[in-house]
Design a protein around this nucleic acid. Structure first.
Length: 327
DNA sequence: CCGTCAATGAC
RNA sequence: CUUGUCAUUGACGG
């Protein structure tokens, strides 16, 4: 068959539309697209524009281009085709976080960043179709600003009981088996699954490495079931255009807002209980000290994406909108 | 319309 | 030998 080779952008759009219109479809024949020079080349350019440092092999972008980019990409393609590709160990680098703690990065070699990037380009087209409205982190065309708008708007509409969740180190706690199972719900391609397992395994027995190109996408997939649960809670309690629960998640930063009227107290409790269950199933720890339920009508506050949310009174004494303070 | 290269900021 | 994703803004080029 002489099917004219379609461009990567068209392919990704086609995959996305299929996934969107057929929610149970399992994609096959994806590996060949991951291995295409066009895909690898785009992944290389994306990696290069971050000006990142080399992995454990010390090979830089300048080194690669001095030896010839074309040969570099063809070498990767050959190894992928012959199933001899093996990712190298990640280079471990500890960097200080703001609060005096350290963040452990797992930095893949540049050629492994290219492979992960190629895989990400294909898988993202599928899973973007499955992600929920309230999920904002690491997603194309989504900004922290719109996530904050969603929360602010919910507060204005009287959602004043807030579950402010803190997840401890959830990148590190992703269970590979559970994650692969979620990927396999949509991907019926043994080569792709095998490649993904190789990539996960060099990062350790569990967790996705901070520094990995596909880690953000995988982390969103891992928590997609939580987003779906909250979305269902919203739709089940909906009365026409009125909703009584809202949520927004940006990576591990999650807030759930429930209507402040007394008759919805049960919904707040139920949502919290369901969240505990979902995170338990996933092996993700809720930080019990920093997770809190606040009541905005009692002058309590919460923080989301660096903004402090509080309810203020207007000069007339009526409840005004929400207010954002500090950065 | 397509591309390249700087910044910034959320996690 | 501070990694990654995403977004925004700006400059320039064909």
């Amino acid at each position: 068959m002489i099917k004219a080779s379609i461009g990567l952008q068209d392919l990704r759009r086609k995959i996305y539309l299929k996934a969107k219109s057929d929610k149970t479809w399992r994609f096959w024949g994806l590996y060949v697209h991951v291995c295409k020079i066009e895909t690898l080349h785009l992944a290389y350019r994306e990696a290069k524009k971050n000006n990142g440092a080399p992995g454990i092999d010390g090979v830089s972008f300048a080194d690669i281009e001095a030896a010839g980019l074309k040969a570099f990409l063809e070498q990767i393609q050959n190894e992928l085709h012959s199933r001899t590709y093996r990712p190298m160990r990640n280079r471990i680098k500890e960097i200080p976080k703001g609060n005096g703690k350290v963040r452990t990065l797992g930095i893949p070699g540049i050629r492994d960043r290219v492979v992960q990037g190629a895989l990400k380009l294909i898988l993202e087209a599928i899973f973007e179709a499955d992600f929920q409205e309230g999920s904002y982190g690491y997603r194309p065309k989504r900004t922290a600003h719109t996530a904050i708008d969603r929360v602010a708007s919910a507060v204005v509409k009287n959602k004043t009981r807030v579950i402010d969740l803190d997840l401890s180190a959830y990148f590190d706690n992703v269970r590979h088996f559970t994650l692969i199972k979620k990927v396999a719900e949509r991907v019926n391609d043994d080569d792709v699954l095998r490649l993904l397992k190789l990539i996960l395994k060099v990062g350790g027995a569990k967790g996705v490495p901070q520094g990995g190109v596909i880690s953000p996408l995988l982390s969103n997939l891992y928590l997609n079931e939580v987003d779906k649960m909250l979305e269902r809670a919203k739709e089940v309690t909906r009365k026409g255009r009125f909703t009584y629960i809202e949520y927004a998640r940006f990576a591990d930063d999650l807030v759930v807002l429930v209507d402040g009227f007394g008759k919805w107290e049960w919904l707040l409790k139920a949502a919290y209980k369901r969240l505990v269950e979902e995170f338990e199933k996933l092996g993700v720890q809720m930080n019990q000290e920093k997770t809190q339920i606040v009541n905005l009508t009692q002058d309590e506050t919460f923080s989301f994406l660096g903004f402090d949310f509080r309810r203020i009174k207007t000069r007339r004494g009526a409840w005004g909108g929400d207010e954002l303070l500090h950065e």
